[in-house]
Design a protein around this nucleic acid. Structure first.
Length: 470
RNA sequence: GCUCCCUUCGUCUAGCGGUCUAGGACGUCGCCCUCUCACGGCGAAAACAGGGGUUCGAUCCCCCUAGGGAGCGCCA
């Protein structure tokens, strides 16, 4: 039988970190078994669902590369099917109409809470045969009164629930629309889902769903409940921890594969290995190896991983993502050195693409002014002579890294300067600041025309501020 | 309150009864490398929640306690 897993988000917001990891685990499970991954949008809550959220989720999955084999299916388009199943359950005596008012339910709940009992429906309408069709009613599933439901969870092991703990849940609202526990069951059954991999907040729903499945004569799928992800304060992950939306990480300069790698290591590991390519993940991942405990999201480690990926990825790949960020800065990547060359020069000195883009601005656009401290420290009259000499030399050489390097080194030597004493002023002259790749590369990439013009400008700058020095 | 789940360095984790004076990674702190920023290299501090068992022997098995989490909706 083909392994089929699914991701079933409700479109009430963007794709967040927790959902993304659940999707990733489910996706990996399907991939590693050569199975199929289904995307289903659980949008039965008309109030809270939105198409913007659907798009946000689709966009997030696309960016992460979690492609699905089927779907997206929308539950709102399957109402006829749910109605059919509800009728069947009614007919076979597995469900019944309930006319209890919300007020009665409310009172019942309060009463039970007062008596320190678990609030649950008391089965008031369960045995009534006289419920007329025309009064407002909901439909409840007739949960078995006794016995137990063992849940054989791939991650949690065997968890057993007593039916006595379960009450008769509502499967159809008074307006006739189906509720969550009914729709998941029907969909997982109809879509031949073999493995339900989802957040562990659903573990408690599982015995109910199994009972419904059985009432329908279906075989329950395999379940795997993955632990949740906590924020730095040990509480549920939220906006206060910086990032929740997957797409926020794109904006912040993360590579999707870095996020994926971080996420897969949260709750799962393979010995001491930290970095996994997608292929390695698919080959090594096993849902059974996922931890049972919740884990805390650690932004620092994600940042480190991102750096690793930026550093070791194919420059062309990084360049592709970098151009998006340059665009956001209003820069034209064609107005300067080749992106791939820039990436090669910057790969080792950026933790994020945002940082890389910000540190590459001078390659593509003239800077307005020098960094004040940098100019004050490095563009002083004592380097005027060496800079002029350097300008002369640079004007005469072939424009290669080697020749530029040689020019700088020899100029420094002939003026009895340590390399840094000349390289740093030159750096400020051509970049406006103190941070850049090695000076020869930097000058090379900026280009002859631009470099010489900037050097001239720096010399003029020093002359303008020459003061009392010779 | 009830039911269920969880518990190794600050964090992510390795460990699947003796190989543990508990390993790796992030972060932190030193040192080295160095034209800036980085990369890199070396080193340090840092954990088995507590208590009972079982066993010749428990991080690993069982029980209890504590702490954390989830669920208990005409939300999903």
């Amino acid at each position: 039988m083909t392994i089929r897993s699914r991701f079933a988000p409700s479109p009430t917001g963007y794709l967040h970190i927790g959902g993304a990891r659940t999707a990733l685990f489910s996706w990996l499970h399907a991939r590693m078994h050569g199975g199929e991954f289904v995307l289903r949008i659980e949008d039965t809550d008309l109030e809270r669902s939105s198409t913007e959220s659907v798009n946000a989720i689709l966009e997030g999955m696309a960016w992460l590369g979690l492609e699905y084999d089927e779907g997206p299916f929308y539950q709102t388009q399957r109402f006829a099917r749910y109605a059919e199943v509800i009728q069947k359950l009614l007919k076979t005596g597995h469900a019944y109409r309930c006319t209890c008012s919300k007020e009665r339910l409310e009172a019942l709940r309060n009463e039970q809470m007062r008596n320190k009992q678990k609030p649950r429906y008391d089965g008031h309408c369960r045995h009534r045969a006289d419920v007329p069709d025309d009064v407002s009613h909901v439909v409840r599933f007739k949960n078995p009164a006794d016995g137990a439901v063992p849940v054989d969870d791939l991650i949690r092991g065997n968890v057993t629930f007593n039916n006595a703990e379960l009450d008769d849940l509502i499967i159809a609202r008074s307006d006739g629309t189906p509720t969550y526990n009914l729709t998941v069951v029907v969909d997982d059954m109809d879509m031949n889902i073999t493995h339900v991999i989802r957040g562990d907040d659903h573990l408690n729903n599982t015995p109910r769903q199994i009972n419904i499945l059985r009432a329908l004569g279906a075989t329950p799928p395999q379940y795997a409940h993955v632990p949740m992800i906590l924020g730095a304060d040990g509480k549920r992950l939220s906006k206060r921890h910086g990032a929740v939306s997957v797409m926020q990480y794109r904006e912040d300069g993360y590579l999707p594969e870095a996020l994926i790698n971080y996420l897969v290591r949260l709750g799962w590991s393979h010995g001491d290995q930290e970095v996994f390519s997608l292929d390695e993940m698919i080959a090594l991942f096993d849902i059974k190896d996922v931890n049972r405990a919740a884990s805390t999201f650690n932004p620092d480690k994600l940042l480190w991983l991102n750096q690793q990926y930026i550093k070791s990825s194919d420059p062309a790949h990084v360049a592709h993502h970098l151009s998006w960020h340059l665009g956001r800065l209003g820069l034209d990547p064609s107005a300067g050195p080749g992106l791939v060359e820039v990436v090669k020069a910057q790969q080792e000195r950026a933790k994020t693409l945002v940082e890389m883009a910000a540190n590459s601005v001078y390659f593509y656009r003239e800077f307005d002014s020098y960094d004040e401290k940098a100019a004050a420290k490095n563009l002083k009259s004592d380097v005027l002579t060496p800079l002029r000499a350097l300008l002369t030399r640079l004007s005469a050489i072939d424009w290669t890294c080697e020749q530029i390097h040689q020019a700088v080194v020899e100029t420094a030597e002939s003026h009895e300067l340590k390399l840094g004493k000349l390289a740093q002023p030159l750096r400020v002259a051509v970049t406006g600041g103190t941070v850049s790749p090695p000076i020869d590369q930097t000058v090379y990439l900026i280009g002859r025309e631009r470099s010489l013009a900037r050097l001239n400008r720096a010399i003029a700058h020093i002359e303008g501020h020459a003061g009392g020095q010779a």
